[in-house]
Design a binder for these strands. Structure first.
Lengths: 154, 154
DNA sequence: ATACTGATTGTAATGATTACAATTTGACAC
DNA sequence: GTGTCAAATTGTAATCATTACAATCAGTAT
């Protein structure tokens, strides 16, 4: 964890940004909640525990900055809020998401599934891909199992 | 075009909704601007030309309804607005988008590129896919050409 | 110490979207 | 055709996320 923060610090410095205490607290919250997909508001509330004097505007600005540095990805699942999702370290591509329409859970797929697809797009559409977003909507394995169990009871 | 509207009308009726004049005007605007990715506000302004008495709230509600019926898809490219995109008739999957980071253009890919990927996801993650969203961010062929031309001048 | 740049703060403003209460419309029974 | 009723629509007000602003603060270099 400390290593991770150190590296982010270096990354900031390399672009002549500073890792201020507020920024560090924000990054820590993100690291501690790596599985989740927190909104800016969520992050704000969690950071407030560590650093009660922090302002909402600072959290927004920090998240914006981290997005620029590709430390996090800003994603949007269609509810009205942007969510911020830590990139796996060293990942050059954005991971994919499985959104359950039943229970609302969001799972992540770290594998790069789009290699072949991207080749096709670059070749056939002459589009230089820099990044991608891929989200599947459907029923997660937990809800599928639950349903099967219920049907078994009938 | 009239056929298309007729079919949408039937679809509405089948769920016991009505195709009111306001709703029809909204659908017409969407059909006439099929290539574009209009925001609710955009639609509102265009519909006002046909039916000046329409209210913004009605446009929002109509778009919401059409989204439910899968006539349009609600998409989000990261700017603060939702955009509404007509589905190709009979398409069971949502088409993909190419967003140009240079000029902001949004092109569509109607081909289904994800067949194989979806098989993998369903098999390996036991996730029942109902729908998907795939967007590539990068440089569109127009901007690539423009750049090449500029470099040729040097 | 002084000056300067960047960062942070709380609050106010903005902009998209939704909720609300009053009014209108359209379909159907008579 | 007329009356009735639910659904639809309207304009406005409220809400919610996000951004802009102006004042203050911190850290660094001179």
């Amino acid at each position: 964890m400390e290593n991770r923060i150190d590296r982010i610090k270096k990354q900031l410095h390399s672009q002549s940004y500073k890792l201020t205490p507020q920024r560090e607290a924000t990054v820590r919250v993100l690291l501690e909640n790596e599985e989740d997909h927190l909104s800016a508001e969520d992050v704000y509330l969690l950071v407030k525990d560590k650093a009660p004097e922090i302002g909402l505007a600072t959290v927004y600005r920090t998240l914006e900055l981290l997005t620029e540095l590709k430390v996090v990805d800003k994603i949007n699942f269609g509810d009205g809020v942007s969510r911020y999702d830590l990139r796996k370290e060293g990942a050059d591509h954005f991971h994919h998401h499985l959104v359950c329409m039943e229970c609302g859970a969001v799972d992540e797929i770290q594998d790069d599934l789009l290699g072949d697809v991207e080749k096709v797009v670059e070749r056939d559409w002459h589009f230089q891909i820099k990044d991608h977003r891929l989200t599947f909507h459907g029923i997660c394995y937990r809800c599928v199992e639950k349903k099967e169990k219920e049907n078994g009871d009938q």
